[in-house]
Computed example of a mutant assay.
Amino acid sequence: MRDLRICFVGDSYVNGTGDERCLGWIGRLCERRFTRDFQLSFYDLGIRGETISQVRARWRRDCEARFPEGADNRVVLQFGINDIGNITGTGRQVEEDASVEEAEAFVREVADAYPTLWVGLPPANEACSPMHPSEGLEVSFFQKDAEALNARFKTLAETLDVPYFDLQTPLLANRDYMASLTRGDRMHCDGTGYAMIANLIDNWPAWNAWFEDQ
C-alpha cells in the first residue's frame, strides 16, 4: 500500500490560525483525499509569525523527523505574508529583494530533496490593519506589497520549475473571501476563507497529479 506523507511547511496560514473549526486549508484539503486505497499522513508545520528565513531554518529537521525511509515523502510550501508585515516603529520585516533571494535558496533546497509544490501568499488583510497580535506589537499589511512579492515568487517558481499556485488573483476577486478577513480573529481569514483556499487548491492540476501518481 502506498504510504504518502506530506509536510505542509510555512506560517500561520498553513497552520490555519483563526479558523473556528481548527482545520485550516490543509485539513480540509486532505480530508477530500482520504481513501482506504493508500495511507495519507499530513503534517501541519505552520508556525505563526514566521518570516521566510525562520521557516527555512527549520524545514529540514521538521520534515526529516516525519519522513521515514521508503515512504512517498512530499512537501507543500507557503510563506511570505509575514515578510511584508510593517511593524510600527521598525518598518517592514523583510525587504522584497531579500525575500526573493531567500526564497530562491529555500525552494531549491526543498525541491532538490523532495517533490515540492509552492502555494503563494494570500492577500494582505488591509481591512484590519494595524493589528496587535501580541502586547506591544503593532503590525500593518499592505496589498501592494503582497501583490509585488507574489509576482516575483511566481516568476521565480517558473525559473526553478516548481509548480506555483497564485492565490492572489482569485481571492482578491472574491468578495466573500475578502469579507472573511474581517471576521474571526481579525488577522486571518475565518473558516469560510480557508474553505475557499482549499477549494482552489483541490482543483489545481499539480496537486491532483500527486494522487494520480500511484
Rank of each mutant, 00 (worst) to 15 (best):
Q39I: 15
A98M: 00
S129D: 14
A151H: 12
E95M: 11
C7E: 01
F165P: 10
V75W: 00
C7K: 02
N150S: 14
A57M: 09
E64M: 14
V9P: 04
N86F: 07
A111E: 01
V14S: 06
R186I: 06
D97M: 09
D176C: 07
A98G: 00
D62T: 03
A209P: 11
M131L: 01
T90W: 02
K144A: 14
Y43R: 04
A65L: 06
Q78S: 11
T88P: 13
A111T: 14
S134L: 00
V139N: 02
E31F: 07
A65W: 05
P122V: 11
G89P: 04
L77H: 05
E126S: 08
E20C: 15
Q143N: 10
R5Q: 15
R60T: 15
V100F: 05
D190W: 02
L4F: 05
V110R: 06
A206M: 03
Y114W: 15
Q214C: 07
N82C: 05
E135Q: 00
S99G: 03
P115M: 03
T17D: 03
R5L: 11
L121E: 07
L167R: 03
R108Q: 13
W25P: 09
D3K: 05
R186H: 10
M187T: 13
F106P: 11
L156F: 10
Q39D: 13
N203M: 15
N73G: 12
R152I: 13
G193M: 09
E101Y: 10
D185L: 02
D202Q: 14
D72H: 07
Y194Q: 02
G89W: 04
D62L: 03
P205D: 13
G24T: 03
T90S: 07
Q39N: 12
A71S: 06
Q168F: 10
T159P: 08
A157C: 09
T182C: 13
E64H: 13
R5P: 12
S53P: 11
P115I: 05
D190C: 08
S41F: 00
A103E: 00
M178F: 11
E69A: 08
N150P: 12
G10K: 07
P170F: 01
Y194H: 07
D213L: 14
G85S: 14
G70Q: 02
A173S: 13
C189K: 08
P122H: 06
P205Y: 14
E96R: 07
T116N: 04
L29T: 11
T159E: 03
A98N: 00
P205A: 12
F42H: 05
T88Q: 13
L167W: 09
L4N: 05
G184M: 08
W118Y: 10
E20R: 12
R92F: 01
L200M: 13
R66N: 06
Q214Y: 09
A151N: 11
D62S: 02
E20W: 15
L172T: 12
A206S: 08
N208I: 06
V100A: 05
H188A: 06
